[in-house]
């Protein structure tokens, strides 16, 4: 049984389908990469998993239990942690305070009564941002802020980490160090599900890669298999007349008219009239 199971999830906004029957899983102790072109529905998937977005249809199971209607904060208590593509650091607090808040929240009432003595600086050291500990979080570079979000998650000792484009804003050396950190975290038994655009990082650290396109998983496999997958290349580069094989046998995503024409859902007709 996988740590996280996303089962046939559909999300529609007005007439647009953002996630289309997505089914995939992430296992404990492994790094799973979720990749795909812009607008493929990756971040929406994350929002559904973490509870910020209710799916139109489908189920999310965490640790064997269905959590589809469990509120955001309870999912966190059960061991989910996530970072955001568009930063959500607490801008008016220092980096150290950001982690301390996370720790306080994690400990609940106990945190309020007896402030935590956990090794915050150690945690900052681990993700590699110890030097920024006293800076205000809205004054640090993006890449650093992403690592801060990771440190904040780790304060809650999550079993599953959802990382939304964690490496953007990091330079090459930092990205390498970050890859090592991910391997370490997985080795501790945590499951990691990561949306990422840096293919070198994805190919380098992921055990499994799932490719999402038009809200559907179009390919699953280890890095080598994904690299060789023709459909993945098409998803990223588009079709050309040279791809004759594939024009003759188009992938399911584009096979029938039903999936081409995105389902029509009556939008709110009311506004101002």
């Amino acid at each position: 049984m996988a740590l996280l199971e996303v089962d046939d999830v559909v999300v529609q906004f007005g007439g647009v389908t953002a996630v289309n029957h997505a089914t995939f899983e992430a296992e404990a102790g492994r790094v799973t990469g979720l990749i795909g072109p812009n607008g493929a529905g990756k971040t929406t998937c994350f929002n559904v998993i973490s509870g910020l977005q209710r799916p139109t249809k489908g189920k999310v199971r965490f640790n064997g239990k269905t959590v589809t209607s469990v509120p955001v904060h309870r999912r966190s208590k059960r061991g989910m942690g996530r970072t955001f593509q568009r930063l959500e650091a607490f801008g008016s607090l220092s980096v150290r305070e950001n982690v301390r808040v996370a720790l306080d929240i994690h400990r609940g009432i106990a945190g309020v009564v007896k402030p935590a003595k956990a090794d915050i600086d150690g945690l900052l050291e681990r993700v590699g941002i110890r030097a920024y500990a006293d800076e205000r979080a809205d004054s640090i570079p993006t890449g650093t802020a992403r690592l801060l979000e990771l440190a904040r998650c780790l304060a809650g000792d999550p079993r599953l980490l959802l990382l939304d484009e964690p490496s953007s804003g990091l330079d090459e050396t930092e990205t390498d160090a970050f890859g090592d950190l991910l391997r370490d975290l997985a080795a501790e038994g945590r499951g990691i599900l990561m949306v990422e655009h840096d293919m070198d990082l994805v190919m380098g650290v992921c055990d499994t890669i799932r490719v999402l396109d038009f809200g559907e998983v179009i390919a699953v496999g280890d890095p080598a298999a994904i690299r060789a997958d023709k459909r993945v290349q098409q998803a990223y580069l588009g079709y050309s007349d040279d791809d004759e094989d594939d024009v003759a046998h188009p992938p399911e995503a584009g096979a029938t008219d039903e999936t081409l024409v995105i389902p029509v859902v009556p939008a709110n007709q009311g506004a101002t009239t």
């Binding site: 607490f90 950001n98 945190g111």
Partner: peptide, 22 residues
């Protein structure tokens, strides 16, 4: 502790939620 929490809630409710705050 509470003051930090207040500021955190004001700065990013979504992050507070995903960190486990009701």
């Amino acid at each position: 502790v509470l003051g930090r929490l207040l500021v955190a809630m004001r700065d990013s409710p979504a992050a507070c939620g995903t960190l486990g705050l009701d």
